[in-house]
């Protein structure tokens, strides 16, 4: 039952987030904006369309979106969506598997982009792996900090009932939330790392990699991108909401948290400008430093 609820949230809710983000951005710009459910409409339209493949591509291009979505769905099985909804496949060490599943998805997307032989897509792929490699230490240091503070290696136990831990590690957790939020923005190619709305701009990262996908393949890609945003957002939200309650209240709280997350992303996108390319590594390193500082605090506290 709980697993079914978890799976339903994982499969159905992610496309909601980009809709909320876009509505927030539209509100800031003084527009009405597209419907909140726009991405669902887009997906529905795309799965009913045919596809055009470049003559340069091979099976790798066709496998890319499929593998990406599969990896993200399995990663979703590891995360808790609220205290009463543990990850159905949670186990000690799933934090590592989660990070590497994101890596597997990225590898597939990047190879598919390179398969087109287009220099645009090659450029996007290059940036994607660059920023991901630089975001990796921040993500793993955050994981290590949480693991040490909570004495556990699973997202589910790490991100639930952490109220007492907040008391002793509050500042560290705040820094971790900052680091993880930056990682979430970078991994999802959102402002200030990349502007998802632009096309044919030399600063693009994710969008430019998927230019040649069409039809169901493109639907998979959009769907996968929304799952990724949802998953990384879920970590931030669960860490920031350390409250315990009964199951329905929990899920409601979590979903409310996700909406707030989407709103914050929207606010960030409306109020910040996209960074220059050569500044992005510095921001990612800064996220890593945040996480390292948090780690240091936790190390000292745990020892004492």
């Amino acid at each position: 039952m709980r697993a079914a609820l978890h799976l339903a949230i994982l499969l159905l809710l992610p496309p909601l987030l980009p809709g909320i983000v876009n509505r927030v951005k539209a509100a800031f710009a003084g527009r009405r904006g597209p419907p909140v459910l726009q991405l669902y409409f887009d997906l529905w339209k795309l799965v009913r369309k045919g596809a055009v493949y470049s003559t340069a591509t091979t099976w790798i291009f066709r496998a890319g979106p499929v593998v990406t979505v599969a990896a993200l769905l399995v990663a979703g099985l590891l995360l808790p969506f609220g205290g009463g909804l543990p990850g159905p496949a949670a186990f000690a060490g799933d934090v590592v598997l989660f990070a590497y599943l994101l890596g597997a998805g990225r590898f597939a997307t990047v190879l598919a982009a390179l398969d087109t032989g287009s220099s645009f897509e090659g450029m996007g792929a290059s940036r994607e792996v660059t920023f991901a490699a630089l975001a990796e230490p921040a993500l793993f240091l955050s994981i290590a900090g949480l693991a040490l503070a909570r004495g556990t290696l699973s997202w589910t136990t790490m991100l639930s009932g952490q109220m007492p831990a907040w008391h002793s590690f509050g500042p560290a957790f705040a820094m971790l939330i900052g680091a993880l939020f930056l990682v979430a923005l970078a991994e999802n190619s959102r402002i200030p790392f990349d502007d998802p709305n632009t096309h044919l701009e030399l600063t693009m990262v994710h969008e430019v990699m998927v230019l040649d996908h069409s039809g169901p393949d493109f639907a998979f890609i959009l769907y996968g991108a929304s799952i990724k945003l949802f998953l990384l957002g879920a970590i931030v939200v669960r860490l920031a909401l350390p409250f315990a309650a009964s199951i329905p209240a929990h899920v409601a709280l979590f979903l409310a948290g996700m909406i707030v997350f989407a709103v914050i992303v929207g606010v960030v996108e409306s109020t910040f400008a996209r960074l220059r390319m050569n500044r992005i590594p510095q921001i990612l390193v800064a996220a890593g430093v945040f996480a390292a500082l948090a780690m240091a605090v936790i190390l000292i506290r745990v020892n004492g």
Binding site: G50, A51, V52, Y53, S54, S118
Partner: peptide, 14 residues
Amino acid sequence: LLRRQAVSASGTWA
């Protein structure tokens, strides 16, 4: 999904 749909080949669009 693609079984009933037109699948065509072309140069890389980019």
